[in-house]
Amino acid sequence: MRPLLAAATLLMLVGIAWALLAAPTEVFQGLPQRIMYLHVPAVVTAYVALLVVFVGSVLFLWTRQARWDRLAHSAAELAVLFITATLVSGAIWGRPVWGTWWSWDARLTTTLVLWFIYIGYLIVRAWAPGSRGARAAAVIGIVGVLDIPLIHWSAIVLRTLHPQPTVFRPEGPALPASMLPPLGVNLAAFLTLFVALLLLRVRQERMLARLVEQLEAA
């Protein structure tokens, strides 16, 4: 875990330095466009975390093994962290470019709904411990993922303030080639950080479960 955390820290330092000091300045937006090097990796990492929640929740409901629940719970906590980073960085990017911190357009609203769904997931975990809470949370974890296609298609199908996808498109990225390497490093940094924190969090949940078992047996 420590080598992973060290790798994530190193990648993040390189990625941030590259994004702030060496990446090209975009012609229309100017400096605020550099927030993209945070915003895009944050949302991709949030989606990966939600995919882990989905897989963990499905496997928990199927097998009833607590380890899948521990995986889903840990990933949900990280998903909330990265969705928060997405919303906050997007708002700060929106102010100089759109002239507003927030707009109730389809993409922003569906992303906020996603955040609320997983805040709800964590509230259920906190207020209903045990297998009943785990089952309810697993259902929320599965249903919540359905919001991701809505978020993705909202900017394509509907007229939104948020631009259409420029990185992950079937026809390839629309970004200039010189912006892709710093974006790639930041994406690798966020994903490495996610894996490191997830492993740490799952280990904590396992240790806690063992402690509870010990206390109940005593």
């Binding site: 941030i16 550099r34 927030i35 945070l38 928060t84 906050v88 960085s89 700060i92």
Partner: peptide
């Protein structure tokens, strides 16, 4: 200022 704010907030969150 906006760029610095975004990077500071996200790093602080993590």
């Amino acid at each position: 200022g906006y760029v610095a704010a975004a990077y500071t907030v996200v790093v602080a969150l993590v």
